[in-house]
Design a protein around this nucleic acid. Structure first.
Lengths: 195, 195, 195, 195
DNA sequence: TATGAATGAGGGTTCATTCAT
DNA sequence: GATGAATGAACCCTCATTCAT
């Protein structure tokens, strides 16, 4: 990759981070190209040098986020842990993303109304991949007879939903800190799954 | 209340129903005053006779839906059921609302972005009341030693999150229908809570 | 037709005239909705109450103009004149339109790049109708053996082109006035056609 | 001229050819500097090394095309042909340009809208020269008593208009090909002029 | 009460143009 | 000579809101 491409890549990433921040503050309809640009002391027009249009920008935000989370989960999968240990790590990763990269993760909501066909396909693929990681662990647990047989897809949805919701209310100053929250939630998840 | 006021009240309700429908279809940013009015064969301008502005209309939609859900839960609470039976009913009510009043209900997700201060206070109050209903049942279960001791607030958040998330993916044509979904989810909830 | 519809109709016509004027001065790409509105002391946004978008406005301009010209030609056709007399009248009408309603007529130029499929079809139909009026007269002349046999379509194109071009250069203060021009051009046309 | 200047000259010509092509495809408002540059695997910015601005580029396109057409006509004038033969050749040249250099040639239609004062003067001069070539032939024909006496300017306008119009409708796939069209049109022109 | 009509602020997008490197 | 990057003005269009009737 040329030096130039690296610079473009870095700039694109900056814009993405800026966009993610604004979108999270204002919602993806409330976020304007103007604001996203202003965050980086650029002008609206400049964004179009890097992204085809607002939708494209939004799409790439989404893509970036999901990719990172997937990568982290995949690292865990390579570590050769028991299903329970593995799942605890994944819960931790997921909730950490949801809280600490709140801006990023909250974009998981409602792609169907936002993206066009080409983008949607790609996003849906990535989401499927993300979900599959959890399904995989759950299936391992069932196979090793540590987890109860169940509708894997449904229980995974249940768990992901519970964890995603954390962003809506979690607040560092509240009664629980992040670690406690994660531990507690991991317990819930395992109680749900184990025999 | 005068006859006139009754008529106004009735019209307001019609508008709310129309608004709820459109908002559920298009999202609250995608819904336009034009469409909401058209649904009732009115014109945009007329809406402003009944509601101060779009925000006010949206707020009252939200209020209405949340109130109804609360009322339904409260009915269950009066029925003198076991904590388990009660919770199953509440899960059913909640998920039904989440699916059928998709968008309006999901305004719960981020009211701070939508409502102004006066409205926000009222909404937050209603939400607190809503949450308290679940806490109440959980506490009853713990008191009767059917449910395990736990951080009531945390586990309630976990459960509500799991159920809210349903709107993101549930689809009538999928592998599970609404009833099956509810039953399964109720099982999960109870597995989580019971000793 | 209701009174209201009449008022809308009249307003629409005003806007069309305004649009025609601006488009003629600036070209249809150079003409902005802003300017068209300003001409009538309206605001940009108001135009969208009457027309779906710029393209629609442009389309209706075009349609209006052609319809009027067609109507005038059709009046002549009913008058029971000899092909030569008829053609002289049509030349007069066409050139008059081209000069006096310059703004209007110059829109006949290049619809393919401006209109979308639905509009294009309608415009093309109207143009075909317009052309057919001339073809009809030419055919009558040939049938009555006053005009020479020829490729009707081609010779009609030749004639219309010659007349349309007048708008590009004619100028009231020039060596010829409008009447002289029309008479001379009618002579050319007939010289071209007659045996 | 230095070697460098020659290279610049050659590059300028390449750009002009590219611009002419794009303008002919997209119209002079639809053509973007980006596209023109892309055609030559250059970047937008580079064009500004060779041309002051888009208008300048357009102007030079126009100038080039018009000059070529004039040159071609002048070649014919040197060939010592009869007025009729000469005119046929000129009709052929003109129509060929009108069709093949569609957009550039049709800038002839309204230069006042496109060019600034300095450019306009030059263009108008060139056009006058162009028209004069036709007038010359017509006068020769009248002088040699082959053509009928007439208002030379008017009849020339008539003829040029008829030929320019060809761009509006001619289409390679139509009933007539370019050669047939030219022959037929030449016949019309001569029928118009000859005694 | 209801509406037709108008408004204006603002958003997304395009593109000619500039300029440091 | 050439380019990458940025700019900003302008444009089309949407929509909540207003107000006279």
């Amino acid at each position: 990759m040329t030096v130039t491409n690296q610079k473009v890549r870095r700039k694109k990433d900056q814009i993405l981070m800026s966009a993610i921040k604004i979108v999270n503050e204002r919602g993806h309809e409330g976020a304007t190209m103007e604001e996203i640009a202003a965050e980086l002391q650029m002008t609206k027009g400049s964004l179009y040098y890097y992204f085809k249009n607002k939708n494209d920008l939004l799409y790439q935000c989404h893509h970036l986020v999901l990719s990172r989370a997937i990568a982290e989960h995949e690292d865990h999968l390579l570590e050769n842990l028991s299903p329970e240990q593995l799942l605890r790590k994944m819960v931790s990763t997921h909730i950490s993303f949801a809280i600490n990269e709140r801006e990023i993760f909250s974009m998981m909501i409602d792609p169907k109304r936002t993206f066009d066909d080409g983008q949607l396909e790609s996003v849906l693929l990535l989401r499927k991949k993300y979900a599959a990681l959890f399904d995989e662990v759950i299936r391992r647990g069932i196979a090793s007879q540590q987890f109860e047989r169940s509708e894997v897809v449904l229980v995974r949805m249940f768990i992901l939903g519970a964890m995603n919701w954390v962003q809506q209310w979690f607040n560092e100053e509240g009664r629980f800190n992040q670690e406690q929250l994660i531990e507690e939630y991991a317990d819930y998840v395992l109680k749900l799954l184990k025999k």
